[in-house]
């Protein structure tokens, strides 16, 4: 991160000096505190109390760490953690990989590429819940248009029930994400590719590097900071996957697509166990918080190099 200039022409006392930025920040910070810190604190307190909404309307007695113990002995929780991990890895790898391919293919000045670039933003704008419905419709094993296309191209696909098979159901879920994100990531990366001067690549080519070597030796290192951010962004959205789970698979088959967010939703909203759902939420917050911190530290190191 390049340093931004401190823009205070007249000198003043440190307190007075800092009060100005804090005043600017206050409204936004207040909104963020109100809408994220408040619920987190509230959920923390609830996580130590027994509270099932179908038993009592108000929160019940304090039960200490009992609900946290339950989280760590709950197989379905670990299942959803694993599902979320798999989903995140699959969708990040596919989105970024495909996004990179698209960016490299479109990184030229033909009219067709320009048109395609203009349209790349579209899938991201489609509501995730709707993406779920539309892919579910198109992959219906009897009548879906994608299913028919795939069946005619790939003979083995004929017997695949896309949303019925645990592996494919997760892939379809990932695909709904990839459809929205790969083009967007391509757009982000195209911005980065533009800033790589043609001379560099020309130099590499003249040096005898083939296209593959050119990519790995020149393009990739220059894109790396941008790629790190893109991976981070995609991961943030992926670990929170919820909408498409509801509209595409409902968590099935079995529990093969129950994500962490879906699991917490079931405990809180379907089973009305507010206390347990709060404990689950906090475990998720802590785990993701640690992961996010690690990643941010790694990113900062990368930049420092």
């Amino acid at each position: 991160m390049a340093a931004t200039t401190v823009q205070r022409p007249r000198s003043r006392s440190p307190l007075r000096k800092h009060s100005v930025p804090y005043l600017h920040l206050a409204p936004a910070l207040l909104a963020v505190v109100l809408t994220t810190v408040y619920p987190l604190v509230s959920a923390l307190i609830t996580s130590f109390r027994h509270w099932r909404l179908n038993e009592t309307r108000e929160a019940g007695e304090f039960v200490g760490l009992a609900q946290y113990q339950r989280v760590f002995t709950d197989d379905t929780f670990f299942n959803s953690a694993l599902v979320t991990l798999n989903f995140t890895v699959i969708s990040v790898v596919l989105s970024v990989g495909l996004g990179l391919c698209i960016a490299l293919i479109l990184n030229n000045r033909t009219r067709l590429s320009a048109l395609t670039k203009a349209l790349l933003i579209l899938p991201f704008a489609v509501a995730p819940a709707l993406k779920g419905f539309s892919w579910r419709f198109m992959l219906n094993p009897d009548t879906g248009v994608y299913d028919k296309m795939l069946d005619s191209v790939l003979p083995f696909a004929d017997n695949i029930n896309w949303l019925g098979d645990p592996f494919w159901a997760l892939m379809v879920l990932a695909l709904t994400e990839v459809w929205g994100w790969a083009p967007l990531i391509a757009l982000m990366l195209l911005g980065g590719l533009n800033s790589i001067s043609p001379e560099v690549r020309e130099a590499a080519r003249i040096d005898g590097a083939n296209a593959w070597q050119q990519f790995w030796r020149v393009t990739f290192p220059l894109l790396r900071p941008l790629l790190l951010i893109v991976v981070f962004l995609k991961a943030v959205f992926s670990v929170k996957i919820f909408d498409q789970v509801v509209t595409t698979t409902g968590g099935g088959p079995g529990r093969a697509t129950e994500s962490l967010n879906f699991f917490a939703y079931s405990q809180g909203f379907t089973f009305l166990d507010i206390g347990y759902a709060s404990a689950v939420s906090w475990v998720i917050v802590l785990v993701l918080g640690v992961l996010a911190a690690l990643y941010l530290i790694a990113m900062a190191r990368q930049e420092a190099k």
Binding site: R8, H18, Y22, V32, Y265, V285, L288
Partner: peptide, 27 residues
């Protein structure tokens, strides 16, 4: 501006996006 907590607050604001929606919706 540069001020005490600049980087911390910026990161904290980004980090809120890791909070699962359910943790916000339930309370």
């Amino acid at each position: 501006y540069r001020f005490p907590g600049h980087r911390g607050m910026l990161l904290a604001i980004v980090a809120t996006q890791f909070i699962p929606g359910v943790a916000i919706a339930l309370p």
